[in-house]
Design a protein around this nucleic acid. Sequence first.
DNA 1: CAACTCATGTAATGAGTTACATGATTGT
DNA 2: ACAATCATGTAACTCATTACATGAGTTG
Lengths: 192, 192
Amino acid sequence: MSGLTPVATSTLGYALLGLIGRGASTGYELSLLLKEPVGFYWHARHSQIYPELAKLRKAGLVRPRPVRQSDRPDKKIYALTLKGRSALKEWVTEPPREHRSRDELLLKTFSLWIADRKAARALYESELTRHRATLRRHQRVARAYNARVVASTRGSATKAFTDYATLRRGIGYEREVVAWLRWMLQHLRVTR
Amino acid sequence: MSGLTPVATSTLGYALLGLIGRGASTGYELSLLLKEPVGFYWHARHSQIYPELAKLRKAGLVRPRPVRQSDRPDKKIYALTLKGRSALKEWVTEPPREHRSRDELLLKTFSLWIADRKAARALYESELTRHRATLRRHQRVARAYNARVVASTRGSATKAFTDYATLRRGIGYEREVVAWLRWMLQHLRVTR
DNA sequence: CAACTCATGTAATGAGTTACATGATTGT
DNA sequence: ACAATCATGTAACTCATTACATGAGTTG
């Protein structure tokens, strides 16, 4: 009667299902995606991905198709099974478990009262440079989507929309960090 | 000649040093702090804390003082050693290692194209409620500090300032999440 | 009388990183 | 010659969660 929780896999497993659901992929391709665009909010390395794919296969959520190649190593292209597709669909709208974020820079900030002022300035300045670069990168990518996709009224069930939605969050996040870093530096510059 | 990295402990170890450096504490007190105010950016449970305190003690970074009690269990109050204090001071301004954040809600958003629209709305609405509550809680706490502390010109080396700085980041973060969730809901409400 | 606070630990399991291992092709 | 790309795996280790374990005093 109530909402039973059908935990078929770990969150990483669902990350892989989500990627494979957009198009059949090899473990190698998944490792690239979980590094650069998707890796911004869910990161994993190949050493975690290959064993997880084996688990998904044993659970009947994905099916590999072996592809022989002559010039490069053979590969396996994974696709969702019907079971995998419905597991993904269910998981997507279940409330996320409270995840305890860990932000090392904030942890350092908490103890900044003990720090050398000059060293502190250097830290926040380099962080500002890093985050500004990330922000600009996100914005460059976003310009491609922008008006076209989102202005379309029935967009929210398209991959283009969900891509843009995550990007938008990334931009908002980085913008906020940059503003905060600038505020920090303002207060660290007052040397008196 | 160059900047050698003096990794004396894990990041959790430095989290504990940072807390103990503000005032000698028991493992129990540390576990409460790493749950509620500090836990917003670095969370840990008692089962991780007690073994870590033992490691810090063996490394000579903290020193426990046993306190016998009659009405409640005995306890150990940990204080920083000189070595512990300088380890903390060094760590604070070292660049944080690129931490790969994991945001389950964004991962779900990425695959939202597959979801049932009504279920999706419910998800983002409940997230909005949660984050609005957190934001209000942060803002209530911030009102106490506000003008008084930060307006003081030489504040940045005080615990009150660093507390306020982390809080401010928390407020900015939650505000951004709330704005993004509202944007998401706008697009999910268009049912056509 | 049940739940909560104070107080400290250990054990088992799961998640994630780093390192080990191999090997052809292509570009600098 | 050297590094990078494609391609897949395993092993050792660290980090983190959940569960096990105990026990007095207070609050509802």
